[in-house]
Simulated scan of single mutants.
Amino acid sequence: MLIGYARPYSSDPHCEEQFKLLTNMNCDKIIRDDHFTSNQGKNLKNMMNSLSPGDTIIVVKLFAFADSIRHLAKLLNAIEDKGAKFLSLKEDIDTSKNIKGSFKDIIYRIVEFESDIISEKTKKGLSEAKQKGSIPGRPRVPDENVNRAIEMYQSKEYSLSEIKNETGISKTTLYRYLEKKQ
């Protein structure tokens, strides 16, 4: 049996793209979790518990299946122990065949997976911060300090280090505001 597995992530929050690709792979059934983190996915656990020998789990990308390299290794071991197979479309990983590619290629796929993990966690953190009303990025400099720094600069009586010491405005920030005024 071909079993597709999908879960939301930032670039496919409703799993639409994953469903399209898994349908094209002629999956007998597609299982979806609603959680952004696979460790919380009860459908993933149920799928893993009900695997039979000869089944193949298909995912669009590794990040849709696991949250870390350790978690991925645990899931792949469980699949192998049950006599099932695993296929990840994006990374071109198919456990029913001999490993395709050089050691360098394998490491590149692992690095790409790790990059997806970091990217998803960053996007999730930014989203949560915005929901709480926090504005990400550097805090804005109070306008009075900027105006004072511009006045000091234009008077040509102060050096850049004196302006920075007096107002707290760096040279780069000062020049950025001067460009906006022109």
Rank of each mutant, 00 (worst) to 15 (best):
M1P: 10
L2G: 00
L2T: 02
P8E: 00
S11A: 09
F19S: 04
F19D: 02
T23C: 03
N24Q: 14
N24P: 01
M25T: 08
I30S: 06
I30M: 06
I31W: 01
H35C: 15
T37I: 05
S38I: 10
S38K: 12
N39V: 15
N43S: 15
N43M: 13
L44Q: 04
L44R: 07
N46P: 00
D55T: 03
V60N: 09
V60L: 12
V60K: 15
A66E: 06
I69S: 12
H71F: 06
H71Y: 07
H71R: 03
K74E: 11
L75H: 09
D81M: 09
F86V: 04
S88E: 01
D92H: 11
D92S: 12
D94K: 05
S96A: 14
G101V: 02
D105N: 14
R109T: 04
E112G: 00
F113M: 12
E114P: 03
S115K: 14
D116G: 01
I117M: 08
S119T: 13
E120N: 15
G125W: 03
K130W: 05
Q131N: 12
K132T: 01
S134K: 10
P139V: 11
R140P: 02
V141D: 09
E144N: 13
E144I: 12
N145F: 08
N145L: 10
A149Q: 06
E151S: 13
M152L: 13
Q154L: 14
Q154K: 15
K156F: 03
K156W: 07
E157D: 13
E157A: 15
Y158H: 12
S170T: 13
K171P: 00
T173I: 02
T173F: 01
L178M: 11
